[in-house]
Design a protein around this nucleic acid. Structure first.
Lengths: 211, 211, 211, 211
DNA sequence: ACCTAAGCGAGACGGTACGTCTGGTCTTGGC
DNA sequence: GCCAAGACCAGACGTACCGTCTCGCTTAGGT
């Protein structure tokens, strides 16, 4: 989201160099991966993207925002909830997608951005709204569908359920206390959404937790 | 954990100024609270603790470590698991204690340290070992007692259970997506440890949770 | 002297906005007076003259030249040598006019331009030719008339005499070492052109002054 | 005049690197001569003096002051009034020394500093007090001695006389309207201090000014 | 009534230097 | 041997201008 969003009517004037945008974001990602968020400097990005430093500042207010955009451009459309007959199944699969992303470059970026956000309220807001809430909103839809479909108890609090499911992933991402494997996702899933909840009809091996 | 450990025999010479340590840590806390982790500089700490900057560097390798020590000195002994007949009850109460701490100064410090740790492997290790793992170890003991007492299914994976319980708290602390109230703790509790489970009647078939 | 001179045949096309020129020069003067030469930016001039920055650059090569033109437009015709029976009297009166100008806005402009010219050979040339030499040429005529009329010794070197007379004014303008009052002009006058001289009785032995 | 003057008692602490001072000033001069005042940057000075940029800023507030000090260090003691039996002769000789300096590197520096001073009141004050007034004060002493010795009329106003004598030199230095040769100095001398003034007794062809 | 070319407003761009800030190291003299 | 004081190196920061460049609109005169 380069600053362009603010200019509603860029009617005249030299047109913005669109390529530069992509070049900058790509360079930013490359550098973060290569040397880490902290040691990436605007100067370095500018140099490697063949762009003047001022040009970057003209479009983004600071390094964090650049990398935030780079991150969203990379993973934005990647981790969605697949459309499946079973809402729960959709959730479970998406969790694995997310875990996989956490294991790769996006994981590094999320860690960095979330960390940086703790020192930069503006970035925090942006991260929350443009990454976290986007996904949560989609998840809420899925959960509500699951409730309607009887896959989840009517009393389920989506917010709390999401925290319980995803909290652990972020926790491990940040603390490094354990792997982010698919197996871990399954374990969380079993722990939080026990078959009981699934109304027993497919819970066989897990023991039926009827309600 | 000032470097003092290294000096085995301070046989001669000017004795170390013991007060300085406490003064520095107290000042560090005060400043973090007042202006935030980032904008606290060693210079500022030194000035306000009436100590030379070099003295701080002689005892701690960098700012993060100073604040880490300051944090531990403040909250270290504060948030423990109360000894109660019921292991689960002990867990629940401790969660509320932690939530309360998150709402106050310790919350700010944990956020800052955890964030900074993302850019500093050494700090990350220290934070994990001196804060996270200490608490988890204690929690594991409680959980195992709970299992023995039949309050929790035998197949319970303590790691996963802890992630599910506490993950949400850290998640909210960092994201700011929701309150950290006692009510929230209760909601998490209900979601993850449903009463059904507390009765143990269906814990059996869950199988072992890897990782 | 806007660049217009270069365009020989503006046969067709949108006609040049004549008002803009005056508006720009007037704005430039206003801004220099208000904030000083250095802190005036092309941007500011453009904005306050309701003109695009490019328009200014289309007509003048740089800030200094704009202000040079503004200066000449303002004071160009103002400080001339009055036509009087006595050449010396004409000189003396003009010196006072100049001193008066030095005390006001033109003084500020001359200081700025002369200063800037030290870093910009092109401007230096322009300043010398369009301001300094114009006035000196006129002065030379007056002096030669004075010689012919017997008011000045035949051997008088006009260049040196002018430097001696006007040098002090510029000196004080730039150094701020003293007032630029009429009284000062009189003092210079008495010092350099003592009555003795005006009577010619000891002009003889001076010989020709080289250079 | 590096900032050191302000620190009355630098009792303790790492001692200032004295060599660095000289290295910086020498480098500054070299660069001014090589590329001109304007295009010298702090960065360049720092690099070529093998010093951190911050070190320069710690000692001088800005580029102009550095170069001012460099200038004074170079020419400060160079252009003095020789002690001679005749005050006038001393003046005349010093004028020639100054003219010679104007023709060389000091001339370039004076031009630059005087120009820059027009945009920087602080520098202006410094230039006036540390260069101009120093010399004027010495000159005043000489002139007064000249008056006492009867070489100059009792009514001579030293300030005005100095302006008339030196004004032309500065004028030419800044305007580039003529040479700064010794011959020019002689011409100014003859014009301003005509034999008439010398009480007429030795006016022939200017010849010997015995006292 | 169109065509066409120059003037213009708007604004993005590359570039340069600025002066500030902080981190972390090093060097002295005093206690 | 510890300490206070403070100079030092290093390097990123974000800002301010400069002068250039590209657009697309406007405005006539030529046809």
């Amino acid at each position: 989201m380069p600053n362009s969003a603010k200019r509603r009517k860029p009617i005249r004037g030299r047109p913005r160099d669109k390529d530069a945008d992509a070049r900058i974001l790509k360079t930013a990602l490359r550098l973060v991966e290569r040397t880490g968020f902290r040691s990436v400097s605007m100067e370095a990005i500018a140099a490697e993207a063949h762009v003047a430093r001022t040009t970057i500042y003209r479009r983004w207010p600071n390094k964090a925002t650049v990398i935030m955009d780079a991150f969203l451009a990379e993973v934005g459309p990647g981790i969605a909830f697949p459309e499946l007959p079973s809402a729960l199944e959709s959730l479970r699969i998406q969790m694995k997608l997310l875990a996989r992303a956490f294991r790769g470059r996006p994981g590094l970026l999320i860690r960095s951005l979330l960390a940086e956000a703790q020192f930069d309220p503006e970035l925090k807001r942006a991260f929350r709204e443009r990454w976290i809430m986007k996904r949560r909103a989609a998840a809420q839809v899925v959960i509500k569908a699951g409730i309607l479909a009887g896959e989840l108890p009517a009393a389920t609090d989506p917010d709390v359920l999401l925290d319980a499911l995803y909290g652990g992933l972020y926790y491990r991402l940040l603390m490094g206390t354990g792997s982010l494997s698919d197996a871990y996702v399954e374990a969380v899933w079993r722990t939080v959404l026990r078959s009981s909840r699934l109304k027993g009809e497919l819970g066989r091996p897990m023991g039926s937790v009827k309600r």
